[in-house]
Write a protein that binds this DNA or RNA. Structure first.
Lengths: 341, 341
DNA sequence: GGCGTTTCGTATACCGTTATACGTCAATCA
DNA sequence: TGATTGACGTATAACGGTATACGAAACGCC
């Protein structure tokens, strides 16, 4: 095997399976067998081959391997990178896949469906063995099309009837109801919700699910729902939050679909001299690390992201293993009461 | 081209370059030429081929392509996912690579050198065209070995004499000096620094760089440096922070190597009834979004992560383009004064 | 009209693996 | 002893592209 000139003029000598075979004095197929723990290799042959691999520092090419066999690489697609809830999910996933000997590549979707689709296609092109999509913005129909091409698990996107992929979700409907009940118990009646201003085709996303939980609980308590929509979290939305706080009919309590809105709202209230929770109670969702800071002390709903990540990884591995009947899990969340409530 | 049985029993019909060639009634080579914008293809041929590609929904396999040509995919390695400074760097990188038609795959290193090395090898194996390592923990020597195999740019790791790769850094030395000068001007003399407890071989990391800037400025001001070491941010360290605040000789001002320590310290001080900045001034580093919250209002050094990301991406593209002389950039940071100072 | 030149397409040898088909040789069995 | 059976290796056709070599028209020029 000769070296070749790279684009930048640096010369590279790639150690391939042939280099190893030549060095060990065996056939290419024999080396491949050793690599794959395939049947029909003696201890002496294995020893010779492994010695050569070690000596030459050989590493098999994933690209070439992916053309026929498994890559032992999984793709994880995250909506966006700045969301503080996602690290816990990621760590959960990693703890399981690591133990199973799988590698992970991450794609960052920038909260745009087009970008996400591009990344999914890229992961399929790279012959990844499976995909975990976290809080994907892609519609169920499109997801279904991709999921037929590659084992897929979706986290944070409700498609309870999907056949081609699994879903792992927090019970967002119930989580929202818990918040409303807690605010009622604290004596509030004028309870508004800050929901994400999602477009059509997004009823499966978490915010709409929480919204219907909110509506259901409000109605059940004999109260009138009042939903305020704010732009998605990747856009500036301070003006909208400020409007909520300065409106003449400012509510007495606000349930935010995410800490991404609740934390800025809490800070803005403080700046405007509105006392929390005396003048305004605020409850968020995700129980992100910032919410737990004593200076913030924001009540929030905890989804146990790590657990969701673990379950997603387990589902993916079993699907890769051959399962075809879909699995749809719902985890009950937990309200963490803090000073803002 | 026949379909084949996948592991989970699902049947798949893959559209390859040969399918397209047959459909368009041309040779495989002609299709490849169209895909690569290569020389020698007429408008009529291009039209026919593109029509077939569209009709069949063909997408070239990155794996196969990677075996000979470019993959137009770049790898970005992030120390860890929970660090709130990294999103800005990532967005900076993406804004440049996007425009140049490159895709990005992210690896998450979990702040462990071994894991990082594994990910780098994986990215090389996947035939990525180049690598950006953000705040890597890997030693310069090892980096050099990898960088000889693949165009590499390192962000947040000082190796100003490296030949095989480029570096983009904030001037951490100068940033620390700025902090000390500002604290002096505010009348403080008893200024301690909270530095990361790095092992040996890590003098190129940002914390040690800031530490020597701190020492230099303290000495220049005729003050005695006082460095307190805390465990790295992926480990629990509340006990250490509490010890700093409850010690009988508690300093009057603390410069933290990162907001990751400064924010918890500020909150802990508040819990312990220590008034900031009256009893204790705190300055952090990174100017993370949390620091800017009015309720936190932590003075911090801003590194302009987006700009670093952009510069890193530009350097990588030019290196992929053939540049071999190394480029080492230092960006001057900016102190953002806030209530904690 | 003869003779280079372009221009446009095709044929095909790789790239680095996997996995199947097949050959060889020694041990076992009837 | 001849046939059967494993155990162990080898040879080689995929996999889905890229890129080079080369052939065949069409064109320009004197």
């Amino acid at each position: 095997m000769k070296g070749w000139q790279m684009a930048d003029g640096r010369e590279e000598v790639r150690v391939t399976i042939r280099t190893v075979a030549a060095d060990a004095g065996v056939s290419v197929a024999a080396v491949s067998k050793v690599l794959r723990n395939a049947y029909g290799v003696s201890d002496s042959l294995r020893g010779r081959v492994e010695a050569s691999i070690e000596k030459l520092g050989y590493r098999p090419s994933v690209a070439a391997r992916g053309m026929r066999g498994q890559t032992f690489t999984l793709g994880v697609l995250l909506v966006e990178i700045a969301n503080p809830f996602l690290p816990s999910v990621y760590h959960g996933i990693e703890s399981i896949t690591d133990a199973a000997g799988y590698k992970i590549m991450v794609g960052i979707g920038a909260a745009r469906a087009g970008r996400e689709a591009q990344l999914i296609e890229q992961m399929i092109d790279n012959r990844m063995d499976g995909l975990i999509l976290v809080a994907s913005q892609i519609s169920g129909e499109t997801l279904d099309r991709y999921a037929r091409q590659i084992p897929t698990v979706v986290v944070g996107h409700h498609e309870p009837t999907a056949q081609s992929f699994d879903t792992i979700n927090s019970d967002d409907f119930e989580g929202a109801r818990m918040v409303v009940r807690a605010l009622c118990e604290a004596g509030h009646r004028d309870i508004a919700m800050l929901a994400m201003d999602h477009g059509p085709d997004h009823s499966a996303d978490v915010s709409p699910q929480r919204e219907s939980g909110y509506r259901s609980a409000m109605t059940a308590a004999g109260l009138v729902p009042r939903v305020i929509r704010v732009p998605p979290s990747n856009l500036p939305r301070e003006a909208e939050l400020r409007a909520v706080l300065t409106a003449p009919d400012r509510p007495r309590a606000v349930f935010c679909w995410s800490d991404l809105d609740a934390v800025p709202l809490l800070n803005l209230a403080h700046q405007l001299g509105i006392r929390v929770p005396h003048d305004l109670a605020i409850v968020g969702y995700d129980n992100s690390p910032v919410a737990a800071l004593p200076l913030i002390s924001l009540a929030s709903v905890d989804q146990d992201g790590a657990r969701m990540g673990k379950m997603a990884a387990q589902a993916l591995l079993s699907r890769i293993g051959g399962r075809t009947v879909p699995e749809h899990r719902l985890i009950t969340p937990r309200l963490v009461p803090r000073a803002s409530l």
